[in-house]
Design a protein around this nucleic acid. Structure first.
Lengths: 212, 212
DNA sequence: CATTTTACCAAACGATTGGTAGGGAAAAAT
DNA sequence: ATTTTTCCCTACCAATCGTTTGGTAAAATG
């Protein structure tokens, strides 16, 4: 990167910029296939300079995950807790926001990928990934609880999030957004149409509880 | 590895053994985080010796994917085409076989992981992953077609596979098999209970077609 | 028997990895 | 005006990566 002005700016990038650039790369190429050089290049820095902001690659990744989690809390999950709106409207708003993030090339579905990629192989990230999905569950469950009992709401939440994550994978694999979009549309229809009846409450349901 | 007999056997391992050992490692640690040394160690070989069997790591991975795909065809998907049994029985058999493979530490859900991990970052594997899921879709769709029309069968198939893959991810992330087991149980109940009515056929449904 | 092929090992290849050290220049603080 | 801190560079480290090499003992071939 060249600067033609007489004085170089002191600070070329800030912490947030590095996190965002790292996020983009981690999403696109996965954690293990992204090098610190790659991230530095994307920021217009030298690799060594990254260590001024982050003590290690692992630490950077944790910051990235937390940033995404926080983003989802503030821009997606929060729709679930807007008590002024009816359940189906809250779900619709949440899905609309989720789609925007999930199908966005920039932000993308880092956590979904991480969930699979790092579940067993990189236990240092596992608890962060768990926390994200527990928040996801809780948000959807809260919406369903307005219409159904606690148990059914819990089941429906797990099921809905599973459907979303699965179809999101297909959207990626087949490079076709309609998988996710059809899924959210279907889930929305479910809550709009069915007033009382819900998923067959199979006896073996257990509460979604953190184990970590 | 030590041999106490007087003569060392000529061949320590065969191609299939290497593929299985590689599969176990790829599943456990992902493709990029598994080195040729790791695989060689698991086989009791030197890493250079692997190149006697496979021209490259990428090629080995492709063989692994094809092996898993073939295994699913012969041991899981084939239940869908057993025309002597009623639909719900075929689905039950298929799920039972799938659970055994998915939740088995040895074989595991390589393709599900690969689907996410390599969708964009490792395009060399993408078409293989696509083919696997198209076969998965087709198997489930064939079962539903016995009860529902083509369009609804297609929708239900995509939805079921998405639910399975999503809950499978949760089973991994939370180290809890019940996510997947509850999902298969729920899907089975769906086909047993509902004779005619099915998913709300939202107009925007498109056929599952290969794009690659 | 001689010869070739198979199945492996030990060692090394260049490239790349995450990470460190030291220095310099600009900005901020004193 | 001087010192300190912030920010980023170049250069380097040991380790590891996927891959290639030269070679060898055993088996297969003729």
């Amino acid at each position: 990167m060249l600067y033609f002005c007489a004085v170089m700016p002191k600070q070329k990038v800030d912490e947030q910029t590095i996190i965002i650039e790292a996020l983009k790369l981690f999403r696109k190429k996965s954690y293990f296939n992204t090098s610190m050089s790659d991230i530095a290049d994307a920021c217009g820095l030298q690799k060594g300079s990254l260590y001024h902001y982050f003590p290690s690659k692992e630490d950077l990744m944790k910051r990235v995950i937390k940033t995404v989690h926080e983003y989802f809390k503030n821009n997606v999950f929060h729709h679930a807790y807007d008590k002024n709106l009816p359940p189906h409207k809250r779900l619709e708003n949440l899905f609309r926001a989720a789609e925007k993030v999930f199908l966005d090339e920039e932000k993308g579905n880092l956590l979904g990928n991480m969930g699979v990629e790092t579940a067993l192989m990189a236990p240092e990230f596992n608890s962060l990934v768990q926390r994200f999905f527990l928040d996801f569950f809780h948000a959807i469950k809260t919406i369903y609880q307005d219409k159904y009992g606690d148990k059914i709401a819990n089941e429906l939440a797990e099921r809905s999030v599973a459907e979303i994550e699965g179809s999101l994978m297909f959207s990626r694999v087949f490079n076709d957004h309609s998988y996710l979009k059809n899924t959210t549309k279907r889930i929305l229809k479910r809550i709009e149409e069915k007033p009382a009846e819900a998923a067959g409450a199979n006896g073996a349901s257990r509460a979604t509880k953190a184990k970590h």
